[in-house]
Structures are given as structure tokens and as C-alpha cells.
């Protein structure tokens, strides 16, 4: 038989993404769970807020929150909860297992990442006595120029810099 692939979108009125895909594993209820969506939004928003901080520990907490937000998003994606996936229960009644498998993987990965970031911030604290994320090297160089010469328009007198002596020394070379 001829094998034709639907490379172009099918003609006709568009229904909904889920129905168009016509996948039986997805529940017939198309409305996502509003509560979970709000939780996702709050988690990601708080995460972004923390991510913008200079302290690495706060950045770490931010990534943690964003990661959890994304995990909850996968729950939303999985559709409404169904029966546990045991043998004997009809496949249509069972919760969609695939997003759960994916979210488990994502959780494991984020656990490892957080562990690594914690070690990193501890080492940063060991080395510099602070866990603040250092200035950008280029920015530090500009600021140094401003220090030596007249202050540029973007340079604020008395603003504290977290550039370490090491970095400045390196810029000299």
C-alpha cells in the first residue's frame, strides 16, 4: 500500500490539540487543573525571583523551585488522576504513566544538580568567604577603568563590588 504521510496540517476546522492528536492514553477531559497551574506559576515565579539574587544559595533555591514547578507542570500534562496502573484495570482508566516516568527522571537529575551546586557554593564560600556570585569579568574591567580614570556615567561612587583581588590581578595581566 502507498505510504503517504500527513506532512501538511489536515484541512478543516481545528478542534483542540488533544483531540486532533486523538491519543487514547490522554484523558477525555481537556481542561487542565487550574490549582496545579497556579502552583506551577507561583513556584516558577518565586524561583525566578530568587534566581536574580547575588547569593549563590538563593540562586540554588531558585533553581530548586523552578525545577519543582516544572515537575508539577508534568502532573498537569498527565491529565486528571486515574486508577493506579495495575494489571486488570482497563488501560483507559489508568493514569497516564509516561509523564510520571519523565518527572521521576527529572527529579533525580535535579537532586544531583542541587547536590553539585551546594558543593560549588560551599567551595566558593571556602575560597572567598562569601557565596556571592562574582562580577562579570568584563564588567569588572570596565569598573576598574572607571576607577582609574574619571567615573563613567554608569559607575556609581561607593557602590560595593564583589570583585576579588584575584580577578583584578588577572585583568592586569
Amino acid at each position: 500500500m502507498g505510504l503517504t504521510l500527513p506532512l501538511a496540517p489536515p484541512a478543516g476546522p481545528f478542534e483542540s490539540p488533544l483531540r486532533a492528536a486523538g491519543d487514547p492514553t490522554i484523558s477525555s477531559s481537556l481542561a487542565p487543573n487550574a490549582v496545579l497551574l497556579v502552583v506551577v506559576a507561583v513556584l516558577v515565579a518565586s524561583g525566578v525571583f530568587l534566581l536574580l539574587d547575588r547569593s549563590l544559595v538563593r540562586v540554588l533555591l531558585g533553581t530548586l523551585l523552578i525545577g519543582n514547578g516544572v515537575s508539577v507542570l508534568f502532573l498537569v500534562v498527565g491529565g486528571p488522576a486515574g486508577e493506579p496502573p495495575f494489571a486488570g484495570i482497563p488501560a483507559t482508566d489508568v493514569s497516564d504513566p509516561l509523564p510520571q516516568a519523565m518527572v521521576l527522571t527529572a527529579i533525580v537529575i535535579s537532586l544531583a544538580t542541587i547536590g553539585f551546586l551546594l558543593a560549588l557554593s560551599y567551595r566558593l564560600w571556602q575560597l572567598s568567604g562569601t557565596d556571592n556570585v562574582p562580577d562579570d569579568i568584563e564588567d569588572a574591567r570596565l569598573q576598574e577603568l572607571a576607577d582609574l580614570d574619571e567615573p563613567s556615567s554608569t559607575f556609581a561612587e561607593g557602590e560595593e563590588s564583589t570583585t576579588t583581588a584575584d580577578e583584578l590581578a588577572e585583568d592586569h595581566t
Binding site: T63, I66, V70, V76, L98, M102, A106
Partner: peptide, 27 residues
């Protein structure tokens, strides 16, 4: 530090993309 945080963000975005793709297509 910079590298890890940037990579984490891009991974989170990628995951969101996967979730959205799965929601829209079921695969």
C-alpha cells in the same frame, strides 16, 4: 557557577518544552 546556573535554566526551559509538547500531542 555561571555555567551551571545557565545550563540549569536551559534545562528547565527544555523540560517545559517537553511537557508542552507532550500535552499537545501525547507523545
Amino acid at each position: 557557577t555561571t555555567y551551571v546556573v545557565v545550563s540549569l535554566l536551559s534545562s528547565a526551559l527544555f523540560l517545559i518544552g517537553i511537557a508542552a509538547t507532550y500535552a499537545a500531542t501525547g507523545t
